[in-house]
Design a protein around this nucleic acid. Structure first.
Lengths: 240, 240
DNA sequence: TCAGATATTGAACGGATGGTCAACAGAAAC
DNA sequence: GTTTCTGTTGACCATCCGTTCAATATCTGA
């Protein structure tokens, strides 16, 4: 029923939902004033009447995605775990499973993050959210450091939290690349890897080496892969 | 000296270099036929004469980025390490340091990856490259599994390689978000985390729980963060 | 030297997009 | 009923983009 008036917040929500659906289906860059208007059953002019510019609409969609994506919730079961390492690992697993369970939202999340590399408005918004997410891990990281300070020479709580978040990000990226990713095998392999590495009994000495003398392998002998220069039948000169 | 003729491969390289510079400075989406032509000192028509379409040019730039980014090179120092776990960890550290050392290329890499989520041509190309990268880790992952099979119940070599690659990806994302990332603290914290987790001596039993009865915490009590609905002064109706 | 082949140019076309705005319509105030 | 205010419309504009193509310049071979 076009033409009827509506409250401002109602209209804004209606428009934002339409934009969100388009972004979820076809990507953030598929958000256009006309498509959003058509999807919402409104006129293009009305979108700009309520949002002022397309950028504001996109930022509103980003805010909506962030509000429902990076929420870190520490439940009572996790909080009840006594050992700091165990507790942190349980939280890690919870987050990885949550992320693997909502690939559409994570896909949008990373698309915005990529866009934020060049768009300052989006970039600062993403930065703030990632900082907040990492900060949520810090109390638990602090507990781990307190339990065994000698094990983490030169490591700050924020640094440890950054590592945990990095692992979660890597899992998220992986789940996007491989949608049918078996999260249980992934976690099992990760935990086994941790145990294996510790059993070599070389972790402590290696850590000392790094923190004392800097990078242990200064010879950066990284040669590029030898391969034939990019050859492609398609795209050769001479059309038709 | 515009107007002079040149060999096909020379021109293609010239055009691709210009497109790469633009992408490195302003993002992949900043690649336009006109800007590439201007940067290369050529006419817009010539770009399409040699590449047929813009998509082919972008794919050529992607190929160039991949050829010089995800090359995994196992040097003799790493190959000489006897213990499988140690060897894999050394390779992991090498890759993390390499990635942290070339942020511009990694930035482009992830931007292409994001674009590949919606562009099938880019997506398949990225998928192939990531598969190849992960496959390069598999022999070493196999060695780790052979060394202690009981530690990785239900984990395939490819799965373990995926975990390692995921951690590298996470590190790459982190280095983009935080360019002044202290890679040594990062690695130190990561290794300390692994040791800490293993010392809790709960890894084995936890792994068993997962592989036997599925997810250990089926109660997905993940509530959304309660917050005031997105309120922004900017973008309100009524344009001045 | 000249003619054929082809690399190169730049104007022009068609389409898509963000944004503007005069006109219109529905609701509230009088 | 009349006026006033404002949500709403859709045509329109300026701009940018990928692509086409006829004309031109350069090179090659006889």
């Amino acid at each position: 029923m076009p033409g009827t008036k509506a409250d401002e917040s109602v209209r804004r929500g209606q428009i934002r939902d339409a934009a969100y659906e388009i972004a979820a289906e076809s990507g953030v860059r598929a958000i256009t004033i006309r498509d959003v208007a058509e999807r919402a059953g409104l006129s293009p002019g009305l979108i700009l009447f309520h949002y002022g510019s397309k950028e504001q609409l996109v930022l509103d969609v980003l805010g909506w995605v962030l509000e429902t994506t990076t929420a870190l919730n520490i439940g009572p079961e996790i909080a009840a775990i006594k050992q700091p390492g165990e507790r942190l690992l349980a939280l890690l697993r919870q987050e990885m499973e949550r992320i693997a369970g909502e690939p559409r939202r994570i896909r949008l999340f990373f698309e915005f993050w990529s866009a934020g590399l060049w768009d300052p408005a989006i970039g600062t918004r993403m930065q703030a959210e990632l900082d907040r997410y990492r900060e949520a891990f810090r109390p638990m990281a602090e507990a781990v450091l307190r339990a065994d300070p000698a094990l983490f020479p030169g490591v700050t709580p924020a640094g440890l939290a950054a590592v945990v978040v990095s692992f979660i990000k890597g899992c998220a990226v992986q789940s996007l690349i491989e949608p049918e990713l078996d999260i249980r095998e992934f976690i099992s392999a990760a935990e086994g890897l941790l145990a294996q590495l510790s059993r070599t009994d070389g972790v402590r000495s290696r850590v000392k080496r790094i923190t004392r003398s800097g990078s242990p392998n200064p010879a950066r002998s990284i040669s590029r892969r030898t391969s034939t220069p990019h050859r492609d039948k398609r795209g050769s000169p001479g059309s038709t």
